[in-house]
Structures are given as structure tokens and as C-alpha cells.
């Protein structure tokens, strides 16, 4: 799924890494538990989360993953933004809940990791 299309589907705003909105992603993983995200062996996934702090970006960095969808209108902190930019990470924010975002994207063909 193209990231720009994904962004539109969830009524989202790309707040970081807008140059990469042409990228596509095939899989998604939804979690607020970073230890769980860190068990994922693959790197091609978008993290759908409500966790708006520096550790969610660190987790993507360590996972070699590049995309985050932050739900429920959570605010991206300046530290998150700085670290995301440094690592070429795309952050899309959506006013919808995690459940709604996941539902929309699953229906639109984004695949689950498990």
C-alpha cells in the first residue's frame, strides 16, 4: 500500500518524512508495547500505535523499520520529530482511534504480520 494513500484513508497528516510518502508498505503491526514490536524479525511494516514518546521512535530505529501511524490525535513531541528525521522515519498522525485505523487499513488490504 502506498503511504500517501494510507494517509488519506485514515484522515491523516504526515508530520515527518513527507519525501517518502511515495514508498509502499505491505504489512502492519499494531501495538503500544514496544517489547512486542522488538520481537518482529522483518523490517517491512508500519507500526500503528498510540504511544507518543521517544521510545516508539527508538524502537523503529532498532527494528530497521521506517513507518509509524500515530493514532487518536496524539501529539508528536519535538524529541520524537528530531530522532525520526535523523533516521528517515515517516510519521503519519490520525485523529481516528487505533481500532478504527487498523480496521480501515486491514479492509483496504494492508496485511497483518501474524
Amino acid at each position: 500500500m502506498n503511504l500517501g494513500d494510507l494517509c488519506n484513508l485514515v484522515g491523516g497528516t504526515a508530520v515527518c518524512g513527507t519525501a517518502r510518502l511515495g514508498d509502499s508498505v505491505e504489512y502492519a503491526f499494531a501495538s503500544d508495547l514496544m517489547s512486542d514490536v522488538l520481537t518482529i524479525k522483518s523490517t517491512d511494516f508500519i507500526l500503528i500505535t498510540g504511544l507518543a514518546n521517544i521510545q516508539s521512535i527508538r524502537t523503529l530505529e532498532m527494528s530497521d523499520a521506517s513507518y509509524m501511524l500515530l493514532c487518536r490525535g496524539k501529539e508528536v513531541t519535538p524529541e520524537m520529530l528530531e530522532l525520526a528525521e535523523e533516521n528517515g522515519i515517516v510519521i503519519i498522525t490520525s485523529p481516528y482511534s487505533l481500532f478504527r485505523c487498523a480496521g480501515i487499513l486491514y479492509s483496504a488490504g494492508l496485511k497483518p504480520l501474524y
Binding site: 508495547l33 512486542d36 521510545q55 516508539s56
Partner: peptide
């Protein structure tokens, strides 16, 4: 736990 850890998975 608020930082996304503390589930005994580390």
C-alpha cells in the same frame, strides 16, 4: 510500562 516496556519480554 508507560514507555512501552515492562511486559517481561526483554
Amino acid at each position: 510500562r508507560e514507555m512501552g516496556f515492562g511486559a517481561g519480554m526483554g
